[in-house]
Amino acid sequence: MECEATYRGAVYPWQCDHVGHMNIMWYVGKFDEANWNLFARLGLTPSYLRSSGRGMAAVQQNITYKRELLAGDIVEVRSQLLKLREKSICFQHDMTNAETGEIAAFCEATAVHMDRSLRKSAPFADAIRETALKYLVEPAEV
């Protein structure tokens, strides 16, 4: 499935560091906001997580920085689901400068579905798996 926009925003001057480009902490923050939009599309909505006692925990995140972003730049993140396992997902975010179309950074991350009360990983519900399979860009792994 094609990457879908999961975040849109701007770079503010206070998000820039001493050399004038967006500081890495804000790349992470914008990718985090994209996470929650991607999760919601898969059925991992805030109401589902609250009512089911489930949660999502990041276990790995790798970011590659390609181009700097400056104050005033418009940012878009597009996300795709790469792998679906019994209790975890792997996905990629591509952050672009929306004006130029250039990739500024990309992030590949793995998150685990968990039972919040037991503090242990838990299998995805069938409905979540069925929805997630529609977003998968690579063959499913069980």
Rank of each mutant, 00 (worst) to 15 (best):
W26R: 11
W26M: 05
V28P: 09
V28R: 07
K30I: 10
K30Q: 01
E33D: 11
E33Q: 11
A34C: 04
A34S: 11
N35F: 13
W36F: 14
A40P: 12
A40Q: 10
R41I: 02
L42N: 03
G43C: 00
G43Q: 14
G43H: 02
L44M: 03
T45F: 01
T45N: 03
P46V: 13
P46Q: 13
S47F: 11
S47P: 14
Y48N: 05
L49I: 12
L49M: 05
S51N: 05
G53Q: 06
G53S: 00
R54H: 01
G55P: 07
M56S: 08
A57L: 01
A57H: 00
A57F: 01
V59T: 07
Q60C: 14
Q61L: 14
N62R: 14
T64W: 13
K66D: 05
R67H: 13
E68W: 03
L69K: 00
L69H: 05
L69A: 09
L70M: 09
L70K: 09
A71L: 11
G72V: 08
D73A: 14
I74W: 10
V75D: 00
V75H: 14
S79R: 03
L82I: 04
S88F: 08
I89Y: 13
Q92Y: 04
D94N: 04
D94M: 09
T96F: 13
T96I: 13
N97H: 10
N97E: 00
A98Y: 13
E99F: 11
E99S: 07
T100V: 09
E102D: 12
E102A: 09
I103H: 12
I103N: 09
F106A: 13
C107Y: 05
T110M: 09
T110W: 02
V112R: 15
H113M: 10
H113C: 05
H113W: 01
M114V: 06
D115R: 06
D115L: 02
R116P: 13
S117L: 14
S117E: 12
L118P: 07
S121H: 07
A122Y: 04
P123L: 00
P123K: 12
A125V: 03
D126N: 12
A127V: 06
I128S: 00
R129I: 10
T131G: 10
